[in-house]
Design a protein around this nucleic acid. Structure first.
Lengths: 367, 367
DNA sequence: CTGTTAGCGCCTTCAT
DNA sequence: ATGAAGGCGCTAACAG
C-alpha cells in the first residue's frame, strides 16, 4: 500500500471512513454522523457522543482520540437530532419592528455579541411594524423552535393575547424598548420620559416657542412615555399643552411624509419639531428640504436617533441616543439566565438604561 | 355533565385533550404533539400529519377537522423533529461582517422580505470583520443546521478553505457584495469599479486635485475593485496615481481614526477623501471635525454609504449608494431557487446591480 | 383514504 | 469506562 509519507495516519483514517460511510450512507461522504465516527474508532456511538460532550465518565485517552478525529474530519453533530433529543436547541429568536432604524441594528449587535460568547444561535424576525406579522411570527415560535425570545413590539400592537400564549407555554421572554406592561416578563428599556423632557427643554432653552411633537404610535408605551416627557417639560415651563401640535403618525413612510408636509405647511408658526423616532426624524428632514424650510434657521429638529454621524453634519441636529448596544447585551444576558435557570423567575426584572443627548460638539447624560 | 353553553364543543375537546395528554405527557398541557392531537381526533398520527401538511390523499372533511382543532389549540409541529425527518429545515443563515453599516441592515431586510414570503427562517451571524470568527461560524453551519447560506466575506478573509469545505458538503451558498472569486457559487454584487470611477470623477469635476483613497481591506474584491475605479478615473484624466495618497485602513475604528488623523495632519495638500466604506466615511468626518478641517470648504468627502439622511444634512456630502434592499432580495431568491431545485446548478449565477450617486438635491444612476 | 411501521441522528438511562 | 437499547416527534414507505 502506497502511502503519502506526510500524512500516513490521516490517509489510513480517511480510507476507513470511506469504507464505513459507504456501507451505510450510500456513498455520500459529505454527510457524516456519530455512528460513522464510532465505527471508524471502534467505539459505540454512545461513547463517542459522551466524548464529544466532554463527559467525565470517559477516559481522557478516548476523549482525545475521538475529539482529534472529529476535528480532523470537521464533524459537527446534527443539530436537529440533538435538539430533538435534548428539547433545547441553543437558539433564540429576536423579533423587532424593523432594522432600517439604526437603534435596532445596534441592539441586535449587542445580542449577538453575548450569543456568540455563550454559543447560542439567533433567529431574526422583522414585524415591519405590523401587528398581524407579529402574531404570525410568534405563533411559529411557540413550539420549541427556540429556547427563548427577545421582543420589541410593533407600533401597531395594542392587544397582547399572542404574547400571553407564549407565557402559558413557558417560553422565556424578554422585552426591550417597545415593552409591554400587561405581560409578566423581563424588560430592558430606557428613561424615555426623562430623556424626552430634557430634549424638549433643550429646544425651549434654544428659544423655541411652538414645538411640534411627532408621535410614532398611539399604543406603544415608548411613544406614550416620550409624549409624556414632552408634556412634562412644557408644564414645567408653564406652557400650556397645545394638542394641535401633537401629530399622530403612522407606520408608513410615505403617509408620514404627507402628514408632516401638510402639517408644516399649515402651521407656519411651528419653530421646532420633536420626532419621537428615528424614522420620523429623517422624514422631517426630507420634508423641510422640499418645503425649503432651512433647518438651522427657521426650524429646529430634535429626535430619538442612533446615527452617530448626524450631529456631525449639521449644527442644528441634536439627537437623543439610546445605549442600544448595551440594551442588547442586557436583554441577552437576562434571557440566557432565565433559559439556563428555568427554576428561577426573572419576569419581574426591569432594567432601565440612560439615554444621552448628543449635540454637535458636546455630549451630556441625563440625570 | 355541566357544560358552558357558549362553547360546548371546545370544552369537550379540551377535556379529551387533557385526558389524552395526561396519559402520556406527564401533565404538561403546554406541550402538545401530533400523537396527542391524533388521539383526540381518533385518527392515526400519520393521518394528522398528512392533514396538516395538506396532503392530497386525505379527505377534505378530515383535513378540516384536523386543521380546525390544530388552529384552535394553537398546535405547531415540533420543528426539530420535522427537520430531522425531512433533512430540511426551512432555515437559512445570513453571515455578514457587521450591521452598524447601514448597507448590511438593508440587505438583511431584503432577505427577510423574501424569506417571510416563502416561509423560511433566518439565522443571523456577524463576523465582526474577523476571519477567525467567519471560519468558526461557517464550521457550525456545515452539518444541516441550515438549508443554505448567504454570505458576505469579512475584510480580513483572504483564504477560502473554510468555504470550499461548505461546497464539498453541498451546502447551497450565495455571496453578496464581499464576494469570493475563488469558489464556485452564486454572486450578487454591484458595479463597484464603475461607481468608484464616477465618484472620483465627481470629485475631480469639483476641482479637487489631491484625492486620498481610503481602502477598507487589501484582500476584499469589493475594496480592490473600488480602488481600481479610483485609479481608472485618475488615469482617464491623465493624472498620475500617487500611491502615497492611498491609505490602507484596518477593521478597527479607533485605529482608523488614528491612521486618518495622522494622515490628514501630514498631508495638508489633500483636498478630498474618497472613503471606500461607510465606516471609513464616518470616521473621516469625525477626524475632520476634530482637526477643524471644515468639510465643505477645505476638504471634500465622498464615500460608499447607505445612510439616506447624510446628503440631506450637508451639501458637501455626496455618497455612492448601493441598492441594498434589492441585493438582499436577489440573493435570497437565488438561494431559495438553488435549495428548492437541488438538481440545477446555480453556481455560475452572477447578478450585478447598479449603484447610485446621491448628491444633495439630485440623484443620478451610473451607466 | 387511512393505519402500521420504521427510521431521521442524537443523547441518556440502564446494564455491565 | 464503555455498550445496548429506547425514544425525542415527525414523516414517508408500504399496506390495506
Amino acid at each position: 500500500m502506497q502511502v503519502n509519507t506526510n500524512k500516513p495516519i490521516l490517509l489510513v483514517k480517511r480510507t476507513l471512513i470511506n469504507i464505513a460511510i459507504s456501507e451505510n450512507s450510500e456513498n455520500i461522504p459529505n454527510k457524516m454522523n456519530l455512528k460513522d465516527l464510532a465505527k471508524v474508532l471502534n467505539l459505540s456511538s454512545s461513547t463517542v457522543s459522551r466524548a464529544l460532550n466532554d463527559s467525565h465518565e470517559i477516559s481522557i485517552k478516548t476523549k482525545q482520540r475521538v475529539q482529534a478525529l472529529a476535528k480532523e474530519l470537521n464533524f459537527e453533530p446534527n443539530p436537529n437530532a440533538s435538539s430533538l433529543r435534548k428539547q433545547k436547541n441553543k437558539t433564540i429568536a429576536v423579533v423587532v419592528p424593523d432594522i432600517t432604524n439604526h437603534f435596532f441594528s445596534k441592539v441586535i449587535e449587542g445580542i449577538e455579541t453575548i450569543a456568540q460568547d455563550k454559543g447560542y444561535h439567533i433567529l431574526i424576525y422583522f414585524t415591519f411594524e405590523s401587528y398581524a406579522k407579529e402574531v404570525s411570527i410568534l405563533k411559529h415560535l411557540s413550539n420549541g423552535r427556540v429556547d427563548g425570545i427577545i421582543l420589541s413590539l410593533s407600533a401597531e400592537t395594542n392587544t397582547y393575547e399572542h404574547i400571553k400564549e407564549l407565557k402559558e407555554r413557558k417560553v422565556p421572554l424578554v422585552f426591550f424598548d417597545r415593552i409591554c406592561e400587561d405581560v409578566e416578563a423581563a424588560r430592558v428599556t430606557t428613561d424615555n420620559q426623562i430623556a424626552a423632557k430634557s430634549g424638549t427643554k433643550h429646544l425651549l432653552d434654544a428659544g423655541c416657542k411652538k414645538i411640534a411633537f411627532l408621535n410614532f404610535s398611539t399604543s406603544s408605551v415608548t411613544s406614550i412615555q416620550r409624549r409624556q416627557g414632552y408634556i412634562d417639560a412644557l408644564n414645567q415651563n408653564k406652557i400650556e399643552v397645545d394638542n394641535s401640535l401633537i401629530l399622530d403618525c403612522t407606520t408608513n413612510k410615505d403617509e408620514n411624509y404627507q402628514l408632516i408636509s401638510n402639517f408644516l405647511m399649515k402651521r407656519s408658526d411651528v419653530d421646532a419639531v420633536f420626532a419621537s423616532s428615528e424614522n420620523l426624524g429623517t422624514t422631517t428632514y426630507q420634508v423641510c428640504e422640499s418645503l425649503g424650510l432651512s433647518i438651522p434657521n427657521k426650524i429646529k429638529v430634535l429626535g430619538f436617533s442612533n446615527m452617530a454621524l448626524a450631529p456631525l453634519l449639521n449644527p442644528s441636529f441634536s439627537c437623543i441616543t439610546q445605549p442600544a448596544f448595551d440594551i442588547g447585551k442586557e436583554a441577552a444576558q437576562v434571557l440566557f439566565k432565565s433559559i439556563e435557570k428555568p427554576n428561577i423567575d426573572y419576569s419581574d426584572t426591569k432594567i432601565i438604561l440612560k439615554s444621552t443627548l448628543v449635540e454637535r460638539k458636546s455630549t451630556k447624560q441625563f440625570v
